[in-house]
Design a protein around this nucleic acid. Sequence first.
DNA 1: TACAGTTCGTCAAACGATTAACGTCAATCG
DNA 2: CGATTGACGTTAATCGTTTGACGAACTGTA
Lengths: 340, 340
Amino acid sequence: MRVTLRDVAQLAGVSPATVSLVLNERSEGRVSEELAARVRNAAATLKYRPNLLARSLRTQETRTFGLISRDIATTPFAGAMLAGAQHIAWQRNSLLLFVNSDGDLDHERTEVASLIQRQVDGFMLGAMYHQKVEIPENLQDQRLVLLDCVDGAGRYDSVVPDEYQGAHDAVALLVSMGHRRIAHVTTTDQTIAATERLRAYRDVLQAAGLGNEMVVRCEGGEAQGGFAAMQQILRGPALPTAIFCYTDRMAMGVMDAAREAGLRIPADLSIMGFDNQPYLADAMRPALTTINLPHYEMGVWAASRLIPHSDSQDSEPAGPTQVKAHCAVVMRDSVAPPGT
Amino acid sequence: MRVTLRDVAQLAGVSPATVSLVLNERSEGRVSEELAARVRNAAATLKYRPNLLARSLRTQETRTFGLISRDIATTPFAGAMLAGAQHIAWQRNSLLLFVNSDGDLDHERTEVASLIQRQVDGFMLGAMYHQKVEIPENLQDQRLVLLDCVDGAGRYDSVVPDEYQGAHDAVALLVSMGHRRIAHVTTTDQTIAATERLRAYRDVLQAAGLGNEMVVRCEGGEAQGGFAAMQQILRGPALPTAIFCYTDRMAMGVMDAAREAGLRIPADLSIMGFDNQPYLADAMRPALTTINLPHYEMGVWAASRLIPHSDSQDSEPAGPTQVKAHCAVVMRDSVAPPGT
DNA sequence: TACAGTTCGTCAAACGATTAACGTCAATCG
DNA sequence: CGATTGACGTTAATCGTTTGACGAACTGTA
C-alpha cells in the first residue's frame, strides 16, 4: 500500500508529528539535527510522498486551480493559452483542473460547483476569442481571472489582446512603406476585435492624411468572405496597393482572389493579416505578414495573476486590473512597399 | 464559512452519520422516510455540498484523472482531443487534471509524481501525433490509457488513427474515380503516419494493377515541402492526374505550385490531403478533399476506457486493447474524376 | 533543595466525510 | 413471561496530515 507519515514515524522511531515537522522544515529548535536526519533518512528509504488530499483537508489549500474554457475545440489558439497557464501553474507547483463548457451557462454552473466542491483555490475563465462574457453567479464570489475576455463591469482581473494597438501598428507599417491606398476587409459581425481593428485602421489613415478609406464587409470572418470581398474590390474603380484583413483566414481568401485576378503578391498588392494563425499564416504562399495574438503570454499572465508566488509574500495589488497584451507584427513575405 | 455535514445534522437534529446515509441514499430501511425528508430539507436550506476532498480521503477515490499532454501548444488538433476526453469525464462526473510536459521525460516524471500525490484514479497520456512513446517508470504501474500514441510492448490500452485504412480509402477513391496516374507526395521523416500512408498507397495501386507508382519525398511535412515536391513533379515527363498528399499542409504547397504552373484544380489535377486540419482544409480554394483525423472521438474513446461507468458494474475487458480509429473521407472540392 | 529556563519531542484535536458495529425500544412469538 | 426480531439511529474509528499546547529531562542558579 501507500506509505504514510505513520510508516515513516515508525521506521524512524518517532511520532508522526515529529516527522511532519521535520519534513516541512518547521523543526527548527524543536528537533535535534541528529534526529531530523534520521527522519529524513527514513522518509527517503520508504520513498514517502505526502498525501496531498489529506494535507489539503487540513490546510484548506489545494494548490489546484480551475480552468474553464468556453468551447476549446473550435480554435487553434486554445493550446497555446492552456500551455501558458499550465507552465506557470507548474512553476508554482500547482495543478490545473480543466473543464470545457460548450458555452452552455447552465452546464458551466454545474461545472463550477463541481470545482468548488473540490476546493480549488481559484478560477480562470477562458474564452476562445476576445469578447464580453457573462459570469455564472456561483463563480462571482470566487477568486477569478478572465482570459481572452472581459466582464461588463470590470470587476475581475482580465487579459485580452490589444486589438487596437496591433491593428494600429499593422496599418502604420503599410503607411510607412509608402502605401496610400489601403483597404480594410472585415466582417459584418460585431466582435470587439472587428470594431477595434477597424477603429485603428481609420485613425491611422486619418492621422496620415489619407482620406480615401475603403472598408469592405462580408459575412463571417472566413476565407470565403475574404474571397468575396476581394472580388468586390477588383470590380471597383481604383485598386488599393495594400489590404489590411480582419483575420488571416480572410487574408487567405483575399490572396486567392487576387491571385486568380493575376495580381502578384506583394509586388502588385500587399496583404496584411491578423491573428498569426498557427499552421496557416506561415504555410501560405507567400507567407503571410500578420499581427500576432499572444495567447501563450496571455495564459501566462492570467495564471501568474491568479497563483501567488509562494516566496514573495506581498499581497496582490489593489483592485482588479485589466490588461491588454501587446500584439506584435510578424514580418513575412506578403507585404512590401508598393510597386516592388 | 462552508457548511458541513455537521451543520446539516445539527439543523435536522440528528447525527452526522444519519445525514451521510440519507444523502448518499444508503438509508434504505435504516432511517424513517419522515426523518430522511427532514434531513434532505435541512441540506437543501443550507445548500449543503459535500467536501470532495474529505470524501476522497475516506473512500480512496477522487474521481479525478490525470491528462498528460506532450506539447499541446504546437498543434491545432489538441483542443479536440481534450474536448473529447473532457466530455466523457464530465458525463461520469469526474474531472481532468491537465498537465503539459514539453517532451522532457524528467519533467514529466515529476508531473506524474505530483498527480499521484493527488491520488488521481488514472492517467491518460496524449501525444500530438501518432507515435511510439516512452512511458516514465512511475507511470508504468498506474492505470493508463494512451491517446494518439502506442507503447512498444503493447502493455496499455491505446487509441490511434487508422492511418492505413484512411490512406487506403483515399487512394481507392481516386482510383474509383478513374485516375490511373496517381502520385504520392510525402516526407522523408520516418513517422508512423508517413509509413502507413505510403504502404496503403502502394497496396491500392498494386491491387488496381497500376504499376507506375510515383513517390516524391521532401523534408518536413509542411507547405514548403509540398511546393518543392510539386515543382519536381512538374519537371517530370508525365504529369499525374491526381496527387495524394501526406498532409493537408503539404497539399497546400502542392496546390500553390500547381496553380502557379497554370493547372486548374480539380479539372487538371485532383489533390487529396490528409488530416482534415481545422481552419486550413476548409479554407483552401478549392476546399480540400481530405481524410479526417478523429481527434475528438479518440479523446472520447480514451476517456471512456479509463473511466468506468458508475452504473454498469461489469469489470473491464481482459487485457489491453489497441484501437485504431476510423478515418473518414471528407469530400470537398479538390478532387474530381480526371479531365472534368 | 527548590525553582526557573531550555531543549527536544509528543499528545491529541482538528480538517470533513464514510461506515462497520453497536444500542434501544417496541412489537411479536412460543 | 422471557426471548427474539425488526426498525431506527448513533458511536466511534478511520482516511493522512498539520499544529497549538503540553511535558519530561536537563542545566544552571540562588
